[in-house]
């Protein structure tokens, strides 16, 4: 039941995202024909051919419905710029982006859990929270540039750009992961602090548990609850982040495709990217809600 409801709500979100993007691009200055011609030859004949081929002479509502219909059937259309199916364009570029996002998310989460658990003493805590604040408030591209100049230009440990091998993934992933770790560590630490105030922690200690076990077995789980709710935010940060990071590190990926498509008003590609982002967002938020059910048995009781 709950899954069905979530699925329905997710479809609505996708439709709203697709429509909103469609309207925004419709309202953008410049004609579609200009975008398709791009830098190519521009004659009245070619223009009329293009209008014919892309059905641009039909009313906007019909075009919109047609677009939705084809979208619903998995046909993402053809890129104006590349003259290739959008599905192929995205398919080619999605893997490097997903790889980067997953690596960054994983690294960020592991780092955050480790930091939140280990920096309990007053001084280490102070050092860590200062560092977190700095990381959270620094723009990711700056972190990327600093890392590049130190580890690639200075020491030559990692490649400067491209996506060849694991080594090329290290710096971009760290760049994306650091701000994520910053926010998550603060949320986790705050959650652990609050959990340690609870009476059940006294009971746990009174059983003879080591402090480490109190933290890992009891407090951390309670701290995870607010952190899991942040998964949706995490998704947004990563998607927004990759556009910049892929540019800074000259990596292939959705970020590059998006930049290019927006710049040249390549409508089918932009629409596909928007809907893909919305889908990822819906998916992660649903996953977060399900994860909450796993972590907190009290929620299970109220939904069943």
């Amino acid at each position: 039941m709950i899954v069905l409801r979530r699925l329905g709500a997710g479809l609505v979100v996708l439709w709203v995202a697709a429509t909103a993007a469609y309207l925004a691009l419709l309202a953008a200055p410049g004609s579609t024909v200009d975008s398709i011609i791009g830098d190519g030859a521009d004659t009245p004949l070619i223009r009329s051919q293009i209008i014919q081929e892309w059905n641009l002479d039909r009313p906007a509502v019909v075009q919109y419905l047609d677009y939705l219909w084809r979208f619903g059937h998995g046909d993402l259309g053809r890129s104006y710029l590349l003259q290739r199916p959008v599905r192929d364009v995205i398919g080619d570029q999605i893997f490097p982006t997903v790889k980067l996002a997953l690596a960054a998310a994983g690294l960020g989460i592991v780092l955050a859990v480790l930091l939140a658990l280990t920096t309990r003493r007053p001084w280490s805590r102070r050092v860590s929270s200062t560092a977190e604040l700095v990381l959270v408030s620094t723009p990711p591209f700056l972190i990327g540039l600093v890392l590049l100049s130190v580890f690639s230009f200075q020491f030559g440990l990692f490649p400067v750009s491209g996506d060849r091998g694991l080594a090329a993934l290290v710096l971009p992933a760290i760049t994306l992961a650091l701000p994520v770790a910053g926010v998550l560590t603060q949320v986790l630490r705050d959650g652990i602090d609050r959990a340690l105030e609870e009476p059940f922690v006294v009971t746990a200690r009174a059983r003879g548990l080591r402090e480490r076990a109190v933290l890992a077995r009891h407090a951390l789980r309670h701290a995870l609850l607010p952190a899991v709710s942040l998964l949706g935010w995490l998704c947004g940060t990563l998607l927004g982040g990759v556009v910049i990071i892929e540019t800074v590190f000259g990596r292939p990926g959705l970020g590059q495709v998006t930049l290019q498509a927006v710049g040249s008003e390549d409508m089918p590609v932009v629409l596909a990217v928007v809907v893909f982002s919305a889908a990822a967002y819906v998916l992660l938020n649903t996953a977060a809600d399900l994860a909450l059910l796993v972590v907190d048995p009290r929620l299970r009781a109220s939904t069943s």
């Binding site: 009476p199 059940f200 009971t203 789980r221 048995p297 009290r298």
Partner: peptide, 11 residues
């Protein structure tokens, strides 16, 4: 302790 609802780990 008083009140096991909060003295036992609810998770």
């Amino acid at each position: 302790l008083q009140d096991a609802l909060v003295s036992l780990d609810p998770l």
